[in-house]
């Protein structure tokens, strides 16, 4: 039993949650993906931050994403000594361009390395890795 618990322990690095980014991570816990749009100038941005990089306004609008996008680029990693990842190789890291117009770094899952292609339509899947953290990953669109 102890061994099973040990095997299940999540060992990859976890993000640090703070008061600036908490709403974004809490939305992921609810299995919802958001990006931000400036309420004053309309510039969209990812990752979330407290003010607009275009006009420096603090007026934030949260835009709920469709969860659909396309692979902008990717790599299949065969060597990574970091705990959690060395047990997971090969894994696919990708930038996905969301329908809403921003690119986010993520993993492609349910996808063989030879299946991954730039331009491939993908859809979000939510991976609850700890009680506090859910990650947005992507799989080939069904």
């Amino acid at each position: 039993m102890a061994e099973q618990t040990q095997a299940k322990k999540y060992s990859k690095p976890l993000p640090h949650l703070d008061e600036e980014n908490r709403p974004w991570w809490e939305a992921l816990q609810r299995h919802e993906l958001y990006i931000q749009k400036c309420a004053e100038c309309g510039d969209v941005r990812y990752y979330p931050r407290a003010l607009c990089t275009n006009c420096m306004s603090s007026q934030v609008q949260w835009i709920k994403c469709s969860g659909r996008g396309k692979v902008y680029t990717f790599t299949t990693t065969y060597q990574n000594q970091a705990p959690g990842f060395r047990e997971s190789i090969p894994y696919i890291m990708a930038y996905v361009e969301l329908e809403e117009g921003v690119k986010m770094l993520t993993n492609l899952v349910d996808c063989q390395p030879e299946q991954a292609k730039i331009g491939m339509p993908v859809e979000v899947v939510y991976e609850d890795v700890t009680p506090a953290v859910t990650l947005a990953k992507f799989r080939p669109a069904r």
């Binding site: 976890l14 990574n80 990842f85």
Partner: peptide
């Protein structure tokens, strides 16, 4: 915070 959960490496970032 938006990268470390996904296994970024230096070589991976160049590979993309």
């Amino acid at each position: 915070q938006y990268e470390i959960p996904f296994g970024p490496t230096t070589v991976g970032a160049y590979a993309m």
